[in-house]
Design a protein around this nucleic acid. Structure first.
Lengths: 203, 203, 203, 203
DNA sequence: GATGAATGAGGGTTCATTCAT
DNA sequence: GATGAATGAACCCTCATTCAT
């Protein structure tokens, strides 16, 4: 990778961290420059504006999710195992990419304004959703899943249960007076899998 | 209510809207003043600082949730019906108080920093969680629920499934190319109830 | 003293402290109110404006100096003793009324703008200067002082040597790395008396 | 000097004037920018804050004094002439650098707070004080000065007599109803020299 | 005589951004 | 490709002051 590309990369990574920690309006261009060990001018050179930088970060976050989903190989696993693997994968991805959550929350705050400004992101389609459809169909075929369900809803449920837990752990901890990390996390992982499985299993 | 209190109230409501739409750092004090039909100075008169204002908004959002939960009367409903009512209640509260979601997201962004600065919010305890415990115990007693579950997990699941759907509808719509409002919303409501019921029902 | 007058008095004293510590532009009306255990509105009630308050403080400071000078009884002391008494008096007054120094400095900063706005202060005349004139004349008459000197210059010298020392002790201490209080102060007192005496004594 | 340095210099000069005329809290950043023919932002670019700017001004004032003192060449003058030269030098420096007085007064107001924040000013030592020590020692050696005096006191006396006169001329003029500039100034210069000489001269 | 509520103007400071080199 | 200097607009906040009661 050329030096120039390295600079660009460093800025992008720094921006991901900064926006993840402070949000879009709270994230300072100056801080990005400092974290990236570059200078502000370079940010404008490579990304045109703060908004441009944010969109690049957004694209990167989505792309990483997309690539990770794409790497999933569950075509031949038994349907129930595949479902459990999906749960694990989702939770792990959120835990290892915490920046994703806050950056997506920011997008929600702005009602998806920046996603729609990106040319790259027009309908990436979700590999995981496609996968879930296949798994579900196979499960029904094999008689382990009950028919008539919507794979989208199953998929969204997995996202929801994990997203909420990881995203809200700080306020929930404060509100409920519990520590949601550690042992609780393991229990939650098992509980989510169980919920989803019970939701789809035949009889 | 005195005129002074009305002014305070107007500011608080305006701030709730503004912070809900733009976040904490994106929310402008000037805008709050304009929306409240007051002036900037009064904000500092009543709330000391922008941060003080945000904390007041946060307290208000929590209090409203707490009051709504407290008004729930499900002590004598059949356990399964009570569960379904909880799902409905949660989803409805989120839909009618959309400001809650973004404001809580902001709190999560800052890792609960402002909740912990509030004196009023130290452990409000959640009436809904208590209620869920009672419902669950009764359900087990009556033999309709299977035993050995954690009411907290059941409760969090209801929150998660609804929170995610309402909070992320804009990015999900864009990402998946669907409209999650309208008919889809009704289906989701039914699906959440079904998931939770299946998770807790005896056999 | 009526309650009303007490309030006025408390405000005036508080203002003297506040202006002495922070200067005119640095002194906050709010702080004066707090220190006086009253409220801002009362300040405007009694003094019309911040400037009016400052002028009242200024008048007070001058009046106290004037009264103290007026109480000096040195008409019958031997001239040399009288001179020494003047030195002591001046230094002591500065030490016991440190607010005077900063408030006068402030006046100097503004080139005497506020003195000239006061109706009460138009030419109070200085009792101490008059006294010095008498002492000097007597000293010449008695042959202990040399003739041809200007009592004003003698008087100003006493002021200068004491004013400077008390007023600048903080910066001088920092600049020269010395402690000008304590023992040094005693030596200075003696030195000033000696200087003045040597300046006026015949041969 | 580079253009950038010129900008910095212009701001510093402007700030010296503004703080000298209005004090620290009375001095407006906006005014500094206007006088410097620059803009407010540059002040923060070069000096970080209003306080930083004030400290820079303070350092500059001290440095100028230090340099001027350093340029004094009185090693070979007859001791009495040297003393008189010191008096002239001090008075002239105050007259040509009137900003020094108000800025130092401000420092005194704040009890030397800003001097102690400066890294550059930790003990510059005073060339003039060193010089005075040498002059005094030589004077004693040559038998023209009486022994047993403290050069610091002699030096401070010169400062005091001149500082007071220049610094307080506005209030004194108003208070005493005199004009202290013009002819009076010449007389004062002579008087100060005479006082100091009489204080140190043998017999 | 005393107080809480309200206000406009302006305070210092920081923001994202662009100009030169 | 990289950097220091410069900028205008806007930010949060505080000021002295006045309006009602």
């Amino acid at each position: 990778m050329s030096e120039a590309q390295q600079t660009r990369e460093r800025i992008l990574r720094a921006a991901t961290d900064v926006f993840a920690q402070h949000g879009l309006s709270g994230g300072r261009v100056k801080l990005v420059a400092r974290v990236a060990k570059s200078n502000e001018r370079m940010i404008y050179y490579y990304f045109r504006s703060k908004e441009g930088l944010f969109i690049a970060v957004l694209e990167n976050v989505y792309r990483q999710m997309w690539e990770a989903e794409n790497a999933l190989e569950l075509d031949r696993s038994p349907p129930l195992d595949a479902i459990r693997a999906m749960v694990d994968f989702t939770l792990d991805h959120y835990l290892t990419h915490p920046e994703m959550l806050t950056i997506l929350n920011n997008e929600n705050l702005h009602r998806g304004r920046y996603v729609s400004k990106s040319k790259k992101m027009k309908r990436l389609s979700s590999p995981a959703l496609d996968l879930m459809s296949k798994i579900y169909d196979r499960g029904v075929e094999e008689g382990v899943f009950r028919s008539g369900l919507d794979p989208l809803q199953i998929y969204l449920s997995i996202l929801a249960l994990n997203y909420f837990y990881v995203s809200n752990r700080y306020t929930l901890s404060a509100y409920l007076g519990l520590d949601l990390a550690g042992e609780q996390l393991k229990l939650w992982r098992r509980w989510v899998a169980e919920m989803v499985v019970r939701a789809v299993k035949a009889n």
